[in-house]
Design a protein around this nucleic acid. Structure first.
Lengths: 238, 238
DNA sequence: TCAAAAGTGTTGGGGGTACACCCATGC
DNA sequence: GCATGGGTGTACCCCCAACACTTTTGA
């Protein structure tokens, strides 16, 4: 009652801990997946959860998430790590209050340092097959999927997810998985071509890329158009 | 390096404090405003900032924000208090780390308990005239305005902001202020009428409501259509 | 030979956008 | 009478949505 107006004078309660979890969306050419960790030691052996860490009291929120991204993937991805929001309701740690500042990122699954992390139980799981996770991490995943859906609608997203050279089948497949609906092939192509986002590489896939049909046309993104549309946004209405 | 995969075993650092600030958008019939507090005592005398409070270690994030809303307005508004995100970069408290979980809310300015709060320096300021604020509160306001813009685009928002009976001029004015662009009067009306959101009250304003032109038609919202569109969303494309 | 994906055009309808004038009110 | 806002209809054009068949490849 009236507490808040004393804000600058009032004393904060320095007893909470901060953690950050990351929903890493990865595309392998066919499926949209997220990265999960599995605890391999007691007392939480077998528990699945999002890649997470506790923050030191002096760590920046976003920088900490980007550092975690770099640990996992070995490179920086300045644009595609974003905060989702704070989750503080469900997780109760016996030692006290923990608030989780969740983030998400988009990658191509090939970029994951599999060999370095797999013995820690890190692995990809298709977004439609995410099992029960520890803490409130299922809520975080759900929230991230909604955010991704909205993002796909307003900005191009393929650049970080697809291989450098991709087919229209892969692109449509990615959009359908992210937006959880199907599109008419002809209308999808028409819209993409009109957007000037795609560069026709004038060669055909040899079928070696996962999810690529041999003989289908290869494309890459027009960096300039992609940047502009990332900044200005657009409407991908279907 | 590899910290995050020990998450369940690792020890949290219980040294951070949590605060919550609220961007309260209010409409008075003409202007879209936000509520600011002014510190009236040293050592921060004169500093302007968002209504804020520190959280106790056992308080829920959203409930705490809703409680603050109730303190300010004297009623509960379950649907229109939402979390924005966590802000942790700028504010440095001498006592340690503080992370601010910001929220926003929509109200009609008439609902504000002015008499109870004005001697604490609480007052409305038009969104276009927000001065420099303490801490990183300007960042929070900017973020909230972007969120409001997106929300107006996808869901009806007038219900919480407008008086029970309002004119189309007021409604259009509100949408223009929130979305920071102007609309063609005839097209705006056509779109709203088509949406079935409006109920023609079949009476005209006597000009006593602030921002109401005498003689213009009064409307209210169709509760049912409003609820459905709040749940399902739509596209307000202009 | 069979299944799966690639590739390709047209049509109709709905809706976004642009645009101008008269009336009512208050000062 | 002058300024401000209220109220009203039409025409164009773009783009979304629906729709089917042939070809290539691999199993």
């Amino acid at each position: 009652m009236g507490d808040m107006i004393h804000f600058p004078q009032e004393e904060p309660d320095f007893q909470a801990a901060l953690s950050t979890s990351m929903v890493v969306f990865g595309f392998d050419g066919v499926d949209l997946k997220i990265l999960l960790a599995k605890s391999t030691r007691p007392p939480f052996e077998g528990a699945l959860f999002l890649p997470s860490r506790y923050l030191k009291a002096n760590e920046e929120l976003l920088l900490s998430a980007k550092k975690m991204f770099n640990d996992l993937f070995g490179y920086d991805n300045p644009s595609m790590v974003e905060q989702l929001r704070a989750f503080g309701q469900v997780f109760r740690h016996p030692g006290g209050r923990v608030v989780n500042i969740a983030h998400y990122a988009l990658v191509n699954t090939d970029d994951f340092r599999t060999e370095e992390w797999e013995h820690h139980g890190m692995h990809w799981v298709p977004v439609n097959e995410v099992p029960d996770l520890a803490f409130d991490h299922n809520d975080i995943v759900d929230y991230a999927r909604e955010r991704l859906k909205r993002r796909v609608r307003r900005r191009p997203v393929g650049f970080d997810l697809l291989p450098k050279e991709f087919t229209l089948g892969q692109l449509q497949n990615l959009y359908e998985k992210a937006m959880r609906k199907t599109f008419d092939k002809r209308n999808f192509r028409k819209k993409l071509f009109k957007s000037k986002l795609l560069v026709d590489l004038e060669k055909k896939s040899d079928g070696s890329g996962y999810g690529q049909h041999k003989g289908s046309q290869l494309f890459s993104f027009n960096d300039e158009a992609y940047s502009i549309m990332t900044l200005k946004g657009y409407d991908f209405v279907f």
